[in-house]
Simulated assay, not measured.
Amino acid sequence: MERHIRAFIIDDSVVAVEVLKRILESNHPVTVVGTAYDGPTAVGQVIELQPDLIFTDVEMPSMTGIEFCQQIRHQVKPNTKVVFYTAHEKYMIDALHLQAFDYLLKPPTPEDVAMLMMRYYENKLTEIPTMQTVAPQRRQSIIVINATGEHIVLQASEVAFFRFNTDRKQWEVICCDGNIYCLRSRSNSDTILDYSADFVQIHKSYIVNIEHVKMIQESQCFLKEPLQDIDELKVSRNYKRSLMDAFYAL
Rank of each mutant, 00 (worst) to 15 (best):
residue 126 T to V: 09
residue 17 V to N: 11
residue 245 D to V: 14
residue 128 I to P: 01
residue 26 S to Y: 05
residue 29 P to S: 07
residue 145 I to E: 00
residue 223 L to E: 10
residue 82 V to F: 07
residue 104 L to A: 03
residue 18 E to D: 13
residue 7 A to I: 07
residue 94 D to V: 03
residue 77 K to P: 10
residue 40 P to F: 06
residue 17 V to K: 06
residue 211 E to Y: 08
residue 17 V to Q: 10
residue 107 P to L: 13
residue 194 D to V: 01
residue 8 F to R: 09
residue 231 D to Q: 13
residue 186 R to I: 10
residue 119 R to P: 02
residue 218 E to D: 15
residue 44 G to D: 14
residue 25 E to Y: 13
residue 199 F to I: 11
residue 247 F to C: 01
residue 46 V to G: 15
residue 20 L to K: 06
residue 79 N to E: 02
residue 173 V to H: 08
residue 225 E to N: 13
residue 126 T to Q: 15
residue 89 E to R: 14
residue 153 V to K: 13
residue 166 T to W: 04
residue 163 R to W: 03
residue 156 A to P: 10
residue 44 G to Y: 07
residue 164 F to N: 03
residue 55 F to P: 02
residue 121 Y to I: 06
residue 67 E to G: 04
residue 96 L to E: 06
residue 198 D to W: 03
residue 9 I to Q: 09
residue 57 D to M: 03
residue 197 A to P: 07
residue 7 A to W: 08
residue 209 N to F: 14
residue 205 S to F: 01
residue 212 H to Q: 05
residue 62 S to F: 14
residue 129 P to K: 10
residue 112 D to R: 12
residue 15 V to E: 04
residue 14 V to H: 05
residue 243 L to V: 04
residue 106 K to H: 10
residue 29 P to Y: 02
residue 226 P to N: 09
residue 16 A to Y: 05
residue 56 T to W: 03
residue 224 K to Y: 10
residue 220 Q to H: 13
residue 124 K to V: 08
residue 2 E to G: 05
residue 60 M to K: 05
residue 93 I to D: 09
residue 86 T to A: 09
residue 229 D to K: 15
residue 61 P to C: 04
residue 52 D to S: 06
residue 213 V to A: 14
residue 209 N to T: 11
residue 21 K to P: 10
residue 42 A to Q: 01
residue 61 P to L: 07
residue 224 K to P: 08
residue 26 S to H: 04
residue 162 F to Y: 06
residue 122 E to C: 05
residue 231 D to I: 09
residue 56 T to A: 01
residue 54 I to F: 06
residue 54 I to P: 09
residue 1 M to W: 00
residue 214 K to C: 09
residue 106 K to Q: 06
residue 197 A to N: 12
residue 13 S to P: 08
residue 126 T to K: 08
residue 74 H to I: 04
residue 25 E to F: 11
residue 23 I to V: 03
residue 12 D to V: 01
residue 62 S to V: 10
residue 228 Q to L: 07
residue 29 P to L: 03
residue 131 M to L: 11
residue 135 A to M: 15
residue 145 I to Y: 00
residue 110 P to M: 11
residue 164 F to A: 00
residue 57 D to T: 02
residue 40 P to Q: 07
residue 100 A to F: 02
residue 151 H to S: 05
residue 245 D to T: 14
residue 1 M to A: 02
residue 241 R to Q: 15
residue 127 E to P: 00
residue 151 H to D: 00
residue 204 K to H: 11
residue 139 R to C: 08
residue 138 R to P: 12
residue 208 V to E: 04
residue 56 T to K: 08
residue 137 Q to F: 12
